[in-house]
Structure formats: structure tokens, C-alpha cells
Design a protein around this nucleic acid. Sequence first.
RNA 1: GCGUCGGUCGGAUAGCGGCUAUUCCAGCGGACUGUAAAUCCGCCGCCCAUCGGGCACCGAAGGUUCGAGUCCUUCCCGACGCA
Length: 286
Amino acid sequence: MRQEKKKLLVIVGPTASGKSALAVMLAKKLGGEIVSADSRQLYRGLEIGSNYPSQKELHAVPHHLIGIVNPKRIFTVAKYQKLARNAVEKIWKRNKLPILVGGTGLYIQAVVDGFVVPEVPPNEPLRTELEKKTAETLAGLLKKKDKKRWRGIDKKNKRRLIRAIEVAEALGRVPKLKFNRLKAEISFIGLRPPKEMLEKSVRKRAGEMMRSGFINETKRLLGSGVTEERIKEFGFEYRRALQYIRGKIKSKKELVDLIVRDTLRYAKRQITWFKRDKRIRWIRND
RNA sequence: GCGUCGGUCGGAUAGCGGCUAUUCCAGCGGACUGUAAAUCCGCCGCCCAUCGGGCACCGAAGGUUCGAGUCCUUCCCGACGCA
């Protein structure tokens, strides 16, 4: 009768903190399978720029949700949520331990807390239309449609305002946020290397990225018909790579320096996000 | 040595003689409802502090003026031109 409680291990932390290595190690030890929570590793063809796990790691342990999406298609948190929960369920069925690993805080939250995203798919024409307006105008529009949501929203953030209007337009108002939490025993591990360590590994990784053909990867994406606009959405590395290809950045050294700076700034945003989650047990690693 | 231009926050930059000295980058902190490596916000001379308050300050020293980052003099430093 008694069924063993389902378990999930979550590993979070800023980029280049050693999450992958730890995850692989624990997976081997505990009989686990890795589910990636990285918003870009999902896409096919971003091996280098989004830092896929190494071939060795990929072979050592089963990995899920890496390189599964066509980069021309727009992906969303809602889709991720479904795919990831599916993967977790399947792993449980195999009596293995799912290990959710990644630096995309929103994606982690979508899986474990299961916030229910309003059932309104992106409405591109509407978005393009709204994009032309100022934040102030948008806030005014939202206020008329849904005063409650208007009160709580960041009134200068156009992207959020547009989404809120999009939802309110379709449903009459923005529904209150609900959670459909994963029923399992979940342990959170956070990796937080000291600043100098992080800086060092970020720099090292940026150099390796160049050597393994990051620029060519970007050119290949362009060649395969992914638009420049789209590539810019794959993160700062790709934006910088484009600038380099277009001659706006003169040398590889400058390119590396800029990517290092961008990465550290990003790492800080990640830490800000994870800091407020009190379930995480932090490890100061190096 | 002579001439010209300039010295303003970690770097760059604005600043008709008149109250709180601008903007950008870097730095620090924060937010997060279907693009999240995205998007957005605050702080950024020093000290105490909860709101807020106290003290500085525009290379240095003098001067003119009710009032100077802004005008004058001298000095120091830098760039350029001429020797």
C-alpha cells in the first residue's frame, strides 16, 4: 500500500558556478537523470554560445530538454513547464531521481511551484501594435481594462505591460496568480562561488567559447535562415557575436571582455532571483 | 621657451555668474503573471540615519562680486602647434 514518496533534486546557481558538473556527479551516485532548466539550451544549434553540457557529460547521464527546439520558433515558459513536468513524471516512472538543473529561475519556479500562466498565447500583431506606444500610454490602457493588475505592475516595463494588456484583452482581466505545486519531496541546492572565483571561471569559459568556434556557430545560425532579430534573443553572447561579425567590435579580445562583463552582470541578476527563495540550501563552492 | 586649448564622481562628458552640478559607461542593490542570458527600477563624494539630516565639492592658492564650477591673477598638470 505504502508508496515511496516522489523525490526531486533541484540545483541552481549563477552561470559558470559548476552546476552541470555537480549534477552529473550526483546523478551517477544517486541514479538520477538530468532535466535542464536553461532557457537557451533548449534550442538546437546553440551548443557553444549557450554552453551545452560537454559530450562526455551528456553521455555519462541521460539529459532532458537540451537541443529540442527549432531556433526559428519562439518558445515560452508555459511550453517549458509542460515539457519539464512531463520529463520529471517519466523519470519517476522509471524509478529514477529527476535532477532539475539550471540558471533560469523562472523556469525552475514554473516546474516546482507550477504557477499557472494565463491561457493566452502570444498575440504577435497586438504586440507589434502596442510596442509603438509609450509605457505611460500602455499603463493607461491597462488601468482601464484591469485596475487590479495595474496597481501591482511595474508601470515602466513595457514588456510586462504589453503582456498584461494582451491577457486582459482576451480574458477580460488578468487572473490572479495561482500555483499548482509539484507534489514531491524537493531538495534545493544552490551553488554560490565567491566573486573572484566566478570571475575567473567566466573568463576561462569565454576564452574556450571562442576557441571552440563560437563565431562560426553564430554564422551557421545566420546561414540556416535564423533572422538577425531572432539571434539577438538568444542572449548577449550572440548579440556580441553579431556585433563582431558586423565589425562593430574590432578584436576578439574586446569581444571576450564584453562577454565577460555581460556574463557577470547576468550572474548577479540570477543571484538576486535565487536569494529570495528560502528553500535553497547554499553551498559556497570552488 | 612661446602660443592655443583643456583639468568637473572609478572612466568619459554637460554646465548663459544665481537656489538640489548634467548625461553615458563601469560599480552596487532590487523587481519579476506565456520573449527571462529577456525586460524593468533605485543608488552611485563622505558621515550618521527609518523618514531624513549633517559635512564637503568642480587641479591649487588668491582676487572681483550680494553671489563663482563659470570672470581675473599666479602656480601646478595634460594635449596640440611653433620653435
